[in-house]
Design a protein around this nucleic acid. Structure first.
Length: 1011
RNA sequence: GGGUGCUUAGCUCAGUCGGAAGAGCGUCGCCUUUACACGGCGAAGGUCGUGGGUUCGAACCCCUCAGCACCCACCA
């Protein structure tokens, strides 16, 4: 269980929410006043905030909503209440450092209470089905990853006006849940059997009611905007009805049947399981060579087996028909040791003469191959095991009641005593184990229910082949086809108590009656009311109900409006591990019962691994809990968490040491948005992801950067009206809009193609590299420029605000909390009246004018500034010292740009003055910006030798490139065959390089002259 | 035994249509420049796993080999 501490702020939260309401009202009024050009009267400031507000400038911003006391307090959430008590000493209302704790949970509650998660509007539907987590479950990294991607898609589409439904709920998870509750009972000294079926099932329901909600709460922590009002459970009344309906209809069509088959039997759980629930494990075992005496006393044959105990169920010995060693024995009999039975020697091509002795013992009731051989040769099927895999009454008296492994030892010993053990070889074999119990699975003859898979698979194959369903990445379709084309019938009955009881009844003679209810079953067969019937004891495989999830959750078999609206759903987001368990079966059932695919696209994500690339598992002790990444955790509790409840407690010291080594300082708190952004940025095409704390720390820093950039914008605008302006501003303003437009295009392309990594990268680069590193710096200069006019400054302010606001909307699907928090403060300044960012329109590239000319100008400016900065760093000049800059040459356009950009250059390059010169001086270092030569006279500081070396390096670089390009151009084939644009590009490059080289060489020559 | 991926900077990974090798983290300098030290400025760092082929041109397409990972499968 997740031992989350009780929420210490539960009481305080109520107050916070109350305050939130108060603040919303306050903001409405502010907004009205703002629009009317008034300042808010001081009386409107809530008492709890007023003290702080008075301390800082920019009152409007600080009064903005969403400013909970916690946000204003120091970084720890626990201090929220104390901060309230001493407002006078509180920090400035806008914390200098982003503190996710202060906002996330309250924000989420507000969203949920306001009903923002429900599908709204009449637009095109967009629907995602949450893969229902087990009710027993805790949120793990895989969930968190998956939920991040789904929530991003949901929020992205919701903002675009789609009628967006994220259908959520949980799975009853038959075996898993039953095991959990049984273990629980065991601790209380009780058992399922002692309790009886009805009371046990009641106990499971009770347990579900008490502790089943954990994962739902954790999903909320992730910011998942699913419609909780529509939450379903696979054992709800409605979903159970759907299960019965599907079972009955498939049975009526002959697609479900009951039969005695060899199935995979879990002798610990004492239930059948499906092929998929068996995991093959390589293990070191032995190969026993046993002598079976010939009945006629003329000798013996040697059989090789990995399972000597199944000897008791042998029905034959098989050899290959063309194996000359044994040809003369075919048709003879052997006396089965220890059993007093004679069995025939048969010929079957199944036998590989090259393996072992070339003789195989055939045990039709306990091996899938032998079963098939037995069918071909009409051999008896002798079951020798109980349902717990002990020898049953079909075995010789001496072995009855012995567990299979004890029986093995005894039998081998007895054979040895009889001189019938030839030898024992070490042998590597694959052992089938149950995925839940880890018990060695036994092929076991029992009556079970099966779904006839092939007829359902055919249309399911077709719909992927013809593109009605698309896998992303598409190579997963291959895996899907591979399995579907070799699909076996699906064993759906389980000998458990927790699950959907099979709607079949048996008469005294064993005849079967299937119906939606016992009454219907009777009516269909015309049975009298007093005809004795007993219901099948078994329940259905959990995946049977999961297969119906896309339509059962929407109300099927009733024809609900939701079903009509949202089926087929838009996309399924899931891991490759359940393509067969779940995806394939949903497709089959959807096509069968809805006549249409359940979803149009299947996005398959990779597995979350630890930093070393290992799978995360409790037993390895390398689990990371997403909640710990959000909230942080101290080393002690982390170690405790990883080392308690281990299957093998002896591993604890190793795990503790590894944990202490890797997380010596515990795990810092990163917040939900940073975690989500990390997941998104790692979601590259289908490949597994290694989760590395460095990455999440980087994105936490990114959150902080966004927070502080916003703080800057809001502080800059504090108290200033920011009316809409027609003036597009200077080239910096036009450039940042241009870049915004480009970035939005990239972000949308990322989301539209499920390339969350590219969307995240485009956002990151735009916000940090463009907006923060350049535009804000340019804006500062414009706003501080005494020569700038008020309308010019207004355009700058407006641009800061508009671009920030757009970036927040763009970032919202990945970082819902911080974007909402800031947006609520920013948007009103633009006249926006929305109460949440969640339902604001997603920004479009076309909303922001592109301006290639401005883009070219700022690109040139950047080159120039970077050139000067490089000179400064290379020459070890004091960063604070202003230096003179000389420029020489340049195109007409560049000369104009230089004039326009002078204030920017002066500030960004920390230049003292700019001087145009006709001849380069000798005592200057050089850089190029387009055609313009930059010269920084360094006077006494310059060491000509050093400068020559620097320039020579630069020239060498250019020359290398020039060689490559001219070589290419000298190639007639290249010029003839490559596209004209490519050739032209290379030509320009060659000239540019030649020019640059020439100018740098001239400079070197001059410097040499002084040496 | 079949099948699918992966191999690019010290680490984790992008690299779209075949047309100048990129990011984050880490490392190394310099800087408490009033949004941010969870920061700024600058730098170093790559035979794109190997060998071949196609092409005017290959990290990218084809083949070979090697290593790693995963899935499926009934050799006792």
């Amino acid at each position: 269980m997740q031992d989350e501490p009780p929420d210490p702020s539960a009481l305080d939260l109520t107050a916070t929410l109350g305050e939130l309401e108060q603040i919303i009202e306050l903001r409405r009024r502010e907004l009205a006043e703002l629009q009317a050009g008034q300042r808010p009267p001081p009386g409107l400031v809530p008492p709890r905030l007023s003290a702080r507000v008075s301390e800082v400038s920019g009152a409007q911003f600080h009064q903005a909503p969403g400013l909970t006391p916690a946000a204003a307090a120091a970084s720890s959430p626990q201090s929220a209440s104390t901060a309230n008590a001493e407002p006078a000493n509180a920090e400035p209302a806008i914390a200098k450092t982003y503190d996710p704790h202060a906002i996330e949970q309250a924000r989420y509650r507000h969203w949920e209470q306001a009903g923002y998660f429900a599908a709204q509007g009449r637009d095109t539907p967009y629907c995602i089905m949450l893969p229902p987590p087990n009710v027993t479950g805790n949120l793990h990294m895989g969930h968190a990853f998956q939920d991040t991607l789904m929530d991003a898609l949901i929020r992205y589409h919701r903002m675009q006006g789609f009628r967006t439904l994220w259908q959520c709920g949980t799975d009853h998870a038959g075996i898993a849940t039953q095991m959990v509750v049984e273990r629980q009972l065991g601790l209380q000294g009780q058992s399922r059997q002692a309790l009886g079926r009805d009371r046990f099932v009641d106990a499971v329901w009770e347990w579900k009611a008490e502790s089943g909600g954990t994962i739902s709460q954790q999903l909320r922590r992730m910011g998942a905007s699913m419609d909780w009002t529509r939450e379903r459970f696979t054992m709800d009344e409605g979903l159970s009805k759907a299960v019965t309906e599907v079972f009955v209809r498939l049975h009526e069509e002959g697609l479900i049947y009951r039969g005695k088959r060899l199935v995979n039997w879990d002798p610990v759980l004492r239930t059948a399981i499906s092929d998929l629930e068996v995991v093959a494990q390589e293990e070191q075992g032995q190969l026993w060579h046993l002598r079976y005496p010939l009945s006629d006393g003329t000798g013996h044959v040697v059989v090789a087996t990995t399972r000597p105990e199944t000897l008791l169920g042998d029905a034959a010995v098989a050899v290959h028909p063309e194996d000359e060693r044994y040809a003369h024995l075919i048709g003879k009999a052997v006396a089965l040791p220890l059993c007093d039975r004679a069995i025939p020697i048969i010929a079957d091509t199944y036998v590989d003469p090259a393996f072992g002795s070339g003789c195989v013992k055939i045990t039709p009731a306990h091996d899938f191959n032998d079963y098939a051989v037995g069918e071909r040769h009409g051999l008896p099927q002798l079951n020798i095991f109980t349902d717990q895999a002990a020898i049953n009454d079909n075995g010789p008296l001496a072995y009855r009641g012995l567990d299979r492994f004890a029986a093995r030892q005894r039998i081998v010993a007895d054979l040895q005593a009889l001189g019938l053990l030839e030898r024992i070889d070490d042998h590597q074999l694959t052992v089938p184990r149950g995925d839940r119990s880890q018990a060695v699975v036994e092929p076991y003859l029992t009556d079970q229910w099966f779904v006839r898979a092939a007829p359902l698979a055919a249309p399911a194959i077709a719909c992927v082949a013809d593109g009605r369903i698309r896998f992303v990445p598409e190579n997963w379709a291959k895996t899907y086809f591979e399995w579907m084309r070799n699909i076996e019938d699906w064993c759906i009955s389980r000998q458990l108590w927790w699950g959907h009881r099979i709607p079949a009844w048996y008469g005294p003679d064993g005849s079967i009656y299937v119906g939606r209810t016992e009454g219907e079953a009777r009516a269909k067969a015309g049975l009298a009311a007093d005809f004795p019937l007993r219901q099948d004891e078994d329940v259905l495989d959990t995946w049977f109900s999961s297969a119906l999830w896309p339509f059962s959750t929407l109300g099927w078999p009733q024809k609900t409006p939701e079903l009509a609206t949202f089926y087929p759903t838009s996309v399924l987001v899931t891991g490759f591990d359940i393509i067969f368990f779940w995806v394939a079966r949903m497709i089959m059932m959807g096509l069968k019962f809805m006549g249409d695919v359940p979803f149009h696209e299947v996005y398959i994500h990779g597995l979350v691994r630890d930093a070393e690339g290992n799978k995360m598992s409790k037993s390895k002790g390398n689990i990371l809990d997403p909640i710990d990444l959000i909230d942080g955790i101290e080393l002690g509790p982390l170690v405790a968490k990883r080392t308690t409840g281990l299957m093998r407690p002896e591993e604890a010291p190793k795990i503790e040491a590894a944990t202490r080594r890797q997380f010596g300082a515990g795990i810092p708190s990163y917040g939900t948005d940073a975690l989500r952004f990390t997941f998104a940025s790692m979601a590259t095409q289908g490949r597994d992801v290694r989760f590395d704390l460095g990455r999440i720390a980087g994105y936490r820093n990114f959150c902080n950067k966004l927070w502080n950039a916003s703080r800057f914008v809001l502080m800059t605008l504090a108290g200033q009206a920011v009316p809409r302006v027609t003036d597009r501003g200077g080239m910096a303003e036009r450039w940042i809009r241009h870049r915004l437009s480009e970035a939005l295009l990239a972000v949308r392309e990322g989301f539209d193609s499920y390339r969350f990594d590219l969307a995240a990268q485009a956002l990151y680069e735009f916000i940090w590299d463009e907006f923060c590193d350049w535009y804000i710096e340019l804006a500062k200069i414009s706003l501080n420029d005494p020569t700038a006019t008020e309308p010019q400054k207004r355009a700058v302010r407006r641009t800061l605000l508009e671009v920030l606001e757009a970036a927040l909307r763009a970032a919202h699907p990945l970082m819902p909390f911080i974007s909402e928090e800031i947006w609520l403060k920013v948007a009103p300044l633009l006249g926006a009246t929305g109460l949440t960012l969640m339902t604001e329109p997603y920004p479009r590239p076309a909303d922001y004018a592109t301006d290639p000319l401005a883009a070219a100008e700022i690109t040139w400016l950047k080159t120039l500034v970077l050139g000067v900065r490089r000179i400064r760093a290379d020459s070890n000049l004091e960063p604070s010292k202003r230096i003179p800059l000389q420029v020489k040459g340049g195109t007409e356009q560049e000369r104009r740009w230089l004039l326009e950009c002078t204030p920017f250059i002066v500030q960004l390059a920390r230049v003292e003055r700019i001087e145009r010169v006709e001849h380069a001086t000798t005592d200057a270092t050089t850089a190029l910006a387009g055609e313009t030569t930059l010269l920084v006279p360094l006077l006494d500081l310059l060491d000509p030798a050093v400068e020559v070396e620097r320039l020579t390096k630069e020239i060498a670089r250019l020359e290398q490139d020039w060689d490559r390009v001219t070589g290419k151009l000298a190639n007639a084939e290249f010029v003839a065959r490559a596209p004209a644009a490519v050739v032209e590009k290379e030509r320009k490059r060659a000239t540019d390089n030649a020019n640059a080289i020439e100018r740098l060489r001239a400079q070197v020559a001059k410097l040499r002259g002084t040496l």
